[in-house]
Design a protein around this nucleic acid. Structure first.
Length: 725
RNA sequence: GCGCGGUUAGCUCAGUUGGUAGAGCAACCCGUUUACACCGGGAAGGUCAGGGGUUCGAGUCCCUUACCGCGCACCA
């Protein structure tokens, strides 16, 4: 008997050692599995990419959940003898990382412009490298059997080639264009961001009503009103029937008399306010659309630093926040202020990463056209390429109701703004020389070309992730063997940012789906239901603390049992403690079994009595059920059933009964036989869920005819126990 | 405003072709049985949010109401 068994199970002194064993075995790498005969070269493949964590710091409980679910999938597949690849990597997360480093530098009084592009990027890269190392270490502590030999980074050289190739192909197909469009400008971050990076905040604002000639108009933003020379109303509004479209009126406004033009447009809500509004086409997308429809002038009022332009007259150069009250004051003095609603609630768009207030602007940016028909893809648009595979069931989304969310998003999708005015990221592969534009994967050889200053939206490179990590654009064996990937497992908050973009990129560039299944996990919450987040100020639980206290296996069980796709998980310390007891239960039961079979050498000849045969059948039936459920990704059910069988049938019934049989020497061999065979089977079945304790016990089982090949064999690559296999 | 979830034992949640309600934890009673007190045995606990419908039969399907959560859009 191994003396470790004299004490309760101690995860702290086990897990690191076991992980090292696994890592040194090389079995994380499917090539090694094939070489060593674990998987056949022509076996079915199971491949999954790790959603690359941002290199902005540590892994949190959300990452832990992701690693646990994926590790279960991967271990199960590997035990089934599939060619199993779990591909790791990290994400440069352009804006998120850059703004994080900027904030860190600010603390030391350093601004990025003082450093210059090159020096600043060095600092970012240094930070990214440190974060990367932390993340990899943490992932290993969590027991993730990732194939580290294939690790990728969204901003490394190979991925840069993929990005430039993707850009070039889309540019040549006319899917990427440069144009003046209404974009979301973040004055704080000094970059545009996509619609999906907006966060709306409800705020109480003052809602002013002003006299505008014969009309009354309302606004929360008087500072944008300098250039307002169009007054718009609904064509069917009877109150304003006397006015005609195109009619000019003279009126007194902020900086003196102006001539305004009446515009009739159906976009106006007659119920809202007075049913009349003036428009600022340069700084509002609705106003922009009205202006486009009626071919109206558009004038910029606010610059990219949030300051007023010369059109503001005496307010020229003022910050909009300072100017607002002064403008109201002036209008009031002129007798044009009608009323102020102090309690008006409106929603303000802010930037996800910098929390800067968004200023819509018309700007020259790069876009991906989602509606253009693509000749080499059967004249389908990117939108159609995204919709089709989900509609046709080539991609299955779990839980299924997210399909509707997905469809709804795509149907309302606008062109994707992909250029960013930040330094950290993939530089746009476009060069300019006077009026010429050059787009290639490599810089032009001749002198005089200047590369576009902008970088790409971070999701552009993440969108390529399933195939850029497998070697694309090269036609590699990995690409052939492992793409499309079997499943994508990620949080449902990434459905638009990432999942949709991967489908877009893969469908267009590779001509196939990036994955056949999508498994959305929920958000991890604290036991009182709050979102775990450092920014929210509540104490975010560090998964490594939990592991140190209760062990990885306990955390894994707590994260799996009672957790179904798409639903949020409340992480409760009590549950974790309970599952730590479970690992100890397995430990003790194993000790008992090993004691009983110590001198047992008749495994070959022993037969089960009727009673014990029944238990074998019961377990076989359970395995049949759970195998089916594993294939349906219903891990919660499987873990719960195995837990229950182990504790309340194997331990409470099988072991208890065996004591009597062995003591009275009645059918003792049958009892011993059942003990060892059920234990081994259960260790295998439980292994994907609680890999550490099961592997540790396995290592102490004697190699014998009971089915363990040799002393050093790893449970990790044993065959999944299933009667149907 | 449109859409999507949720509402099941005190708490956290399972419950997939509709067929007599489940687990874990907590609480209760009994038990120091030689793997384990990080234990064992036992009992208790629910008109499955409310209402209506389909069905021989509904937690499960349909309609509706309420409350909670989330997403999207609008907000002059």
């Amino acid at each position: 008997m191994n003396e470790k068994f004299l004490k309760p199970y101690d995860p702290k002194n086990t897990e690191e050692r076991i992980y090292k064993l696994w890592e040194e075995s090389g079995f994380f790498n499917p090539d090694v599995c094939i070489e060593k005969g674990i998987a056949k070269a022509d076996a079915e493949h199971f491949s999954i990419v790790l959603p690359p964590p941002n290199v902005t710091g540590n892994l949190h409980t959300g990452h832990a959940l992701m690693l646990v679910i994926e590790d279960i999938m991967v271990r199960y597949a590997r035990m089934q003898g599939k060619k199993t690849l779990w591909l790791p990597g990290t994400d440069h997360a352009a804006i998120a990382t850059q703004s994080k480093v900027e904030k860190m530098l600010e603390k030391d009084g350093v601004r990025k412009n003082d450093l210059g592009r090159e020096e600043f990027l060095k600092r970012v890269e240094q930070f990214a490298n440190e974060s990367h190392d932390t993340i990899v270490n943490q992932a290993k502590k969590m027991g993730a059997t990732l194939d580290w030999s294939r690790e990728a980074f969204t901003l490394d050289e190979d991925r840069n080639i993929a990005v430039r190739t993707a850009f070039k192909e889309m540019y040549d197909d006319g899917l990427i264009y440069r144009g003046h469009r209404m974009v979301n400008w973040d004055p704080k971050g000094q970059t545009v961001i996509s619609d999906d990076e907006l966060v709306y905040e409800e705020r109480k604002s003052k809602f002013y009503t002003f006299r505008y000639g014969p009309f009354e108009i309302s606004t929360v933003r008087p500072e944008t009103k300098f250039g307002d020379k169009y007054v718009v109303m609904h064509p069917k509004d009877k109150r304003y029937a006397e006015y005609t479209d195109g009619q000019k009126i003279k009126l007194e406004w902020i900086n003196g008399p102006i001539e305004a033009t009446i515009v009739k447009d159906e976009a106006i809500d007659m119920e809202f306010g007075t049913g009349v509004m003036t428009i600022t086409p340069w700084h509002s997308s609705i106003d922009f659309e009205i202006a486009e429809r009626h071919k109206l002038d558009k004038e910029q009022i606010i610059d990219k630093y949030g300051k007023l332009l010369p059109i503001a007259g005496e307010f020229n150069g003022m910050k909009i926040t300072d100017a607002r009250e002064k403008i109201v004051e002036k209008l009031k003095d002129k007798g044009l202020l009608v009323s102020v609603d102090e309690n008006y609630i409106n929603r303000v768009a802010t930037a996800e990463r910098t929390s800067g207030m968004i200023e819509p602007q018309i700007m020259l940016q790069w876009f991906v056209d989602v509606n253009k028909k693509i000749a080499r893809r059967e004249n389908k648009s990117l939108k159609e390429l995204m919709l089709e595979p989900v509609r046709e069931g080539k991609i299955k989304i779990m839980p299924i109701h997210f399909e509707k969310v997905y469809f709804n998003w795509i149907e309302n999708l606008r062109d994707w703004c992909i250029s960013r005015q930040i330094w950290y990221g993939h530089r746009i592969p476009v060069w300019y020389k006077n009026d010429e534009i050059y787009c290639e994967t490599e810089a032009p050889k001749e002198d005089g070309w200047i590369q576009d200053e902008d970088t790409l939206d971070t999701w552009f490179s993440s969108g390529l992730w399933t195939f850029s990590t497998l070697g694309w654009p090269k036609k590699t064996d990995d690409l052939k063997n492992y793409h499309p990937t079997t499943i994508l497992e990620t949080g449902h908050d990434l459905i638009f940012f990432w999942v949709a973009r991967m489908i877009l990129m893969s469908q267009y560039l590779v001509g196939e789906v990036p994955f056949k299944n999508v498994y959305f996990h929920g958000m991890v919450r604290t036991s009182d239901g709050k979102k775990m987040s450092k920014s929210l100020g509540n104490k975010a639980v560090d998964p490594l603390d939990i592991i140190a206290k209760y062990g990885n296996d306990a955390l894994r069980m707590a994260m799996i049992i009672g957790n179904t796709p798409g639903n949020d998980l409340k992480l409760n310390e009590n549950d974790i403690r309970g599952y730590a007891k479970f690992t100890n239960k397995i430990w003790n039961a194993s000790r008992f079994v090993l004691e009983q079979i110590k001198d047992f050498d008749s495994l070959q000849t022993a037969t089960l009595d009727e009673e014990d045969q029944k238990n074998t059948e019961e377990l076989n039936k359970l395995l049949e059920e759970t195998t089916k459920e594993m294939n349906e990704y219903r891990f919660s059910l499987v873990a719960e059933k195995l837990y229950h069988y182990f504790w309340h049938t194997f331990a409470d019934v099988v072991i208890e009964r065996s004591k009597k049989k062995i003591l009275e020497n009645k059918n003792a061999d049958s009892a011993r036989m059942l003990l060892i065979t059920q234990l081994m089977t259960l260790l295998k079945a439980l292994h994907p869920f609680i890999p550490f304790v099961t592997e540790e016990i396995w290592s102490m089982l004697p190699a014998s005819s009971a089915g363990k090949p040799n002393d050093k064999s790893l449970l990790m690559v044993e065959k999944w126990p299933s009667v149907s296999n």
